[in-house]
Write a protein that binds this DNA or RNA. Structure first.
Length: 767
DNA sequence: CGGATTTAACTTTTT
DNA sequence: GTTAAATCCG
């Protein structure tokens, strides 16, 4: 029987969710409770048992990765899924928008702007506006407008309720921004949600088409939906109410992006006759890990009470790693990784290191590289956001969508071809006076006022080149257009002339982009008239690097906590579990406490990625920008009962024995015992602590001394100490900062100058 | 007027 | 350590 095959291996609540036939369904699925399983089995069950055609179902996710995972899992459950729409909110509605673009006065091949593109446009708009707009920061304006869009607030409404002059100004930029986006035949990410609503409101017959097409809508990660998405979905399902949402309020971590946690908390009020199913059995983590996770998240007030349970053994106790600074932390993580791999036959790919900010990846990366451990960083300075990639994509966007003046501005003089700001402003005024786009005016540059013939010639040459590429794009593949572009534009040539290490890196990135274009071109099949290039542009705007993550590759994975959502690893390290980092310092500015609760959920998400081993690591100091930031352990660590965890430390405690706690670097003196071989475990309550008089520590926070084991004959240096240097004479230490396995000292010498010295080489004597 | 060199600000998370 | 704006130079 079909039913049995689809239902076996499901627990009773999962089964209930899968079999539910009609009407609104809320599945509260805790971390690791098998929600993807429920969604895919439900789609298959609807198709095979309730005879719903796959083409009448719409499944929405937040990431391409989640969509891809669902698609691949469905393959074995439902052989024929033709017409089934599975994808991210953004890509599915972009698909609808391309089909219906003309209703909105757009062309089907509109550009999709990322945050950076939007900011460029906003910067330009601010310049064109009166001087009093000059104090607006493009990035904050962009964020503000994005927020207004997500919250469905109109410019008028904002103006009416503006609490400060800045908000009033942003409200004035907003409509101009929308107008220029349209002039550029471009939409930003938020428009991909907002415009379908406009479309449906203005053209009920179009809404009716999609309403009747999709008889069942399923949404993953419902806690991440914003108001706009809620309204959009609501418009689609209002008649039949066959909406199934899966989510977990404890994993809502995108509030800053406009996600409205109320959507999931109030689902039962928003729809009538809601069936609610709770999935509380966790199939991922050991008991101890779940207990730690619960200890953390249960401190939140705005949550639906629940507790995950597991049939798995309690497992190893999670470990708290304490380090002097981020280099030490990275070193500890590397050593623990190696030890675990050796002792528990774990592969590199089963280990993940998670952190709050991308900036933290550098120290970790260096440590893994030095240890010759393969690693892979997900996210970070994202591939598609690198300058050279964005430049080339801007070219391609112009070729696919010549009205995209914003992209044209970006590349008109990249590489430099003698078209500077003055020429550009002359061309722009000609375009404005004729009411044509910048691209079209390029061909008539010779008619621009005050433009010397020689320069006009360059402009026309540039236009001719783009026209050639455009012609090429109509018949040839995206990869062909790209390779020709790289050659004709002189982009590659200008880089190779630089002949620097950095330029080589950029060339490698370009080669990677060509590879991606080839890969796309090979799988491209023409549909509804789009060219290969147009289709590729549509896709690249909506993919992220994590989508290309190959789980087969035997590498340690490094990524942000946000990126880790939806993933799982046998061994998880959370690096930087410090106050001011997790939770991030800005969370304290929010007086409602909502931001702090979101930080706690983020930490919870990180913890629940772990299947067997969990390490929570914090460092007493951390290099940030050019100075050193000192902090104590995250307050979230204090929520964890001491008996659930172990501690490994390389901190030195004032008042503790002078014997340092087994910390050293490779090449240093002494060695750290491998884990499992009776590691030094330090319980703070058993350690005699002496409070520093300068900076009283909060209760329960260990006060570390920034000092490492220097060996017998190499004393540690302290700020304020008087020292003597062989050549420079005597002076005072004004700054001490750890650098690799040494200390970097700033010494102000009595002769008046300050010098930075490495402790190891300076050979300083005490005065 | 355009190109090159120097300076400054920057980092929370992302479709 | 990175990129865009500011300043300088040809």
């Amino acid at each position: 029987m079909i039913h049995e095959k689809l239902l076996k291996d499901l627990n009773p609540p999962q089964r209930e969710a899968v079999c539910h036939k009609e009407g609104p369904l809320l599945v509260l699925a805790g971390a690791g409770s098998g929600k993807t399983r429920v969604l895919t089995h439900r789609i298959a069950y609807l198709a095979r048992v309730h005879k719903v055609k796959p083409g009448r179902m719409l499944a929405l996710t937040f990431t391409n990765k989640a969509a891809g995972e669902m698609k691949s899992r469905l393959q074995s459950l439902l052989a024929d899924n033709t017409g089934l729409w599975i994808g991210t909110f953004h890509s599915m509605f972009a698909r609808i928008l391309r089909r219906e673009a003309e209703y909105l006065g757009y062309a089907a091949h509109f550009s999709i702007y990322d945050t950076d593109d939007s900011q460029r446009l906003i910067k330009k708009i601010i310049k064109e506006l009166p001087a009093e707009f000059g104090n607006l920061k493009p990035s904050s304006v962009q964020q503000g407008i994005s927020r207004y869009k997500n919250d469905l607030r109109s410019a008028e409404e904002i103006k009416a309720h503006a609490v400060n002059p800045i908000e009033r100004k942003v409200a004035q930029v907003y409509p101009e921004y929308q107008k220029q986006l349209k002039d550029n035949n471009a939409m930003d990410f938020d428009d991909l949600i907002l415009k379908p609503m406009e479309l449906f409101r203005a053209h009920p017959e179009v809404l009716e088409r999609y309403r009747s097409r999709f008889s069942h809508v399923l949404i993953d990660e419902y806690q991440d939906t914003n108001r706009a998405q809620y309204n959009l979905v609501r418009a689609l399902v209002d008649e039949h109410q066959n909406i199934c949402v899966v989510g977990d309020d404890d994993q809502s971590i995108y509030g800053w992006r406009g996600a409205d946690i109320r959507n999931i908390l109030e689902f039962e009020r928003d729809f009538e006759g809601v069936t609610t199913i709770r999935l509380e059995q966790n199939y991922r983590s050991t008991g101890n890990i779940l207990d730690v996770a619960h200890a953390v998240v249960s401190r939140n007030t705005g949550r639906k009470p629940k507790k995950l349970w597991t049939e798995k053994p309690v497992g190893a106790r999670p470990v708290i790693l304490e380090s002097i600074h981020e280099l030490d932390e990275a070193e500890q993580i590397v050593m623990q990784s190696s030890a675990i791999r050796a002792q528990e036959s774990i592969t590199w790919r089963e280990i993940a290191v998670l952190y709050r900010t991308n900036a933290q990846s550098r120290a970790l990366e260096d440590a893994f590289r030095r240890a010759s451990i393969p690693y892979r960083i997900i996210g970070g300075p994202r591939f598609y956001e690198r300058k050279e990639i964005k430049d080339l994509l801007a070219y391609l966007k112009v070729i696919a969508n010549p009205r995209d003046s914003n992209s044209l501005y970006r590349i008109i003089n990249v590489p430099t071809r003698g078209i500077g700001p003055v020429t550009l402003s002359r061309l722009t005024s000609l375009a404005n006076s004729r009411g044509e786009s910048l691209y079209h005016i390029l061909a008539e540059a010779d008619q621009a006022e005050g433009l010397p013939d020689s320069i006009a010639g360059k402009v026309i040459d540039f236009h001719t080149m783009l026209e050639e590429l455009r012609a090429l794009s109509l018949t040839e593949s995206a990869s062909k257009v790209l390779t020709e572009l790289i050659r004709l534009s002189g982009y590659e040539e200008s880089l190779s002339e630089l002949d620097t290490f950095e330029a080589q890196g950029r060339m490698d990135n370009i080669a990677e982009l060509v590879g991606a274009a080839q890969e796309f071109s090979e799988r491209f099949t023409p549909d509804n008239g789009a060219t290969c290039l147009e289709a590729w542009m549509a896709e690249t705007s909506l993919v992220s690097e994590i989508d290309f993550h190959d789980p087969e590759e035997d590498c340690v994975t490094l990524m942000t906590l946000h990126n880790a959502k939806g993933l799982e690893f046998p061994v998880v390290f959370i690096a930087g579990a410090e106050e001011n980092l997790v939770p991030i310092v800005r969370a304290f500015e929010d007086t409602t406490g909502a931001a702090l609760e979101e930080e706690r959920r983020l930490f919870y998400v990180g913890i629940t990625r772990a299947k067997e081993r969990l390490f929570l690591s914090w460092a007493a100091s951390r290099r940030r920008f050019s100075d050193i930031l000192e902090s104590g352990p995250s307050s979230f660590l204090r929520d964890i009962p001491e008996e659930l965890i172990e501690r490994h430390t390389s901190l030195t405690y004032r008042g503790a024995s002078s014997r340092k706690l087994g910390f050293s670097f490779p090449g240093g003196r002494g060695s750290r015992p491998p884990i499992g071989a009776a590691p030094p475990i330090l319980h703070p309550e058993s350690t005699p602590l002496e409070k520093s008089s300068a900076r009283p520590a909060a209760a329960g926070i260990i006060e570390p001394v920034f000092e490492r084991d220097q060996g017998v004959d190499e004393p540690a240096y302290r700020k304020g100490e008087r020292v003597v240097h062989n050549t420079f004479g005597s002076g005072t230490i004004v700054q001490v900062s750890p650098y690799l396995d040494d200390l970097k000292l700033s010494v102000r010498f009595d002769s008046g100058f300050t010098k930075k010295l490495m402790a190891r080489f300076a050979r300083l004597k005490r005065e």
